[in-house]
């Protein structure tokens, strides 16, 4: 009954979106974690207004959706746990266990389990999100940070900020089978949708390493140069690659820009000016817009992907950190 109701709802949503298709963007919802405010700002991607501010646990950082967009998972780092909220009613559902100081996580493509980087413990925790139990703990390098599960679910990659490696973990055995050295302070890892390549950003190294997943080696390094900006301020963190693997967008931290990269030639095509200290970013599901989290200016920049420029800043809470956008 519930699913029938949902189908009807989504039909209505599709119909509604057809009506507004001419008006540039569809109505999705962006969830932004505000690290210093202990809140989540929910933004309507059509009106570009904050429609809800959720109070959550301490120091929310990593944020993602589960259960087909019905659950919102948040790493509340200072509370040493993962909080689960209903993404539709914004009501608290439950707490998932994690080790100390969870920062980023990723979900197996089947929807379960969840792989969590515990930054204070050199451990990746594998958590069953239905039962709320820790299934395994995988030792990795110092200060685990970025997490990415391969599209086929076979590999989970973790980056370690002080060890400077991408650790490849076999999801069947929960053991590391490759440790690939990248540049200093690796942050975010992102697979291409075909699972062949892995992009890893290095915040202090100032580079993106492209790793051939099959060969398990770095095949290319992307560097950045912006006239008038000190090289030390170019600190790549968030990475998003579009579904057909042609374009990548990389957040450059205190350089206050998003780099637009040809994902085939690795050439940087453009730098888009956004707010200050941009850490993370997300596409809308139609890939027409990108939302960026600008930590020190307390806002989100909305980028028109086609025109490759920002066209709106939305004030959110203090120190916005992560962003995820719901289909619904």
């Amino acid at each position: 009954m519930k699913s029938v109701f949902r189908s009807v709802l989504s039909l209505i949503a599709i119909a509604a979106s057809l009506v507004v298709a001419s008006a540039n963007a569809q109505a999705y919802r962006a969830f932004v974690s505000n690290e210093k405010d202990n809140t989540i700002s929910v933004i309507d991607t059509k009106t570009l207004k904050v429609i809800k501010t959720m109070k959550v646990g301490q120091r929310p950082r990593g944020i993602m959706l589960a259960k087909d967009g019905d659950w919102l998972l948040i790493c509340t780092s200072d509370d040493n746990r993962i909080e689960v909220y209903d993404a539709n009613t914004y009501e608290f559902i439950k707490i998932l266990p994690s080790g100390p100081d969870p920062e980023l996580f990723d979900l197996h493509p089947s929807g379960n389990p969840l792989y969590i980087a515990n930054e204070d413990d050199n451990i990746v925790a594998v958590v069953d999100i239905d039962k709320g139990t820790i299934l395994a703990e995988v030792p990795v390098g110092v200060e685990p940070e970025g997490m990415a599960v391969s599209p086929d679910g076979g590999i989970v990659v973790n980056t370690s900020e002080t060890t400077n490696m991408a650790h490849f973990i076999d999801t069947k055995t929960n053991e590391t089978f490759a440790n690939i050295l990248v540049d200093n302070r690796p942050r975010v890892a992102q697979f291409t949708t075909d699972g062949k390549l892995l992009w890893v950003s290095a915040e202090i190294g100032g580079t993106i390493s492209i790793i051939d997943v099959e060969k398990k080696e770095v095949i290319h390094k992307i560097t950045f140069e912006i006239p008038g900006i000190n090289a030390d301020a170019i600190q790549p963190v968030g990475i998003r690659i579009n579904k057909d693997n042609t374009k990548a967008f990389v957040a450059l931290g205190p350089a206050n820009r998003i780099a637009v990269i040809d994902a085939k030639t690795y050439k940087v095509e453009k730098y888009i000016l956004v707010g200050q200290r941009v850490w993370n970013l997300a596409f809308t599901p139609d890939e027409k817009l990108i939302f960026t989290t600008n930590g020190t200016s307390n806002d989100v920049t909305v980028i028109d992907v086609k025109k490759q420029r920002g066209y709106k800043s939305i004030p959110v809470g203090r120190y916005p950190w992560g962003v995820v956008i719901s289909e619904k």
Binding site: G141, V142, S160, T162, T163, M165, N179
Partner: peptide, 9 residues
């Protein structure tokens, strides 16, 4: 910190 990296190398 060095040895955590070192055990991989």
């Amino acid at each position: 910190d060095n040895n955590t990296t070192g055990r991989f190398l």
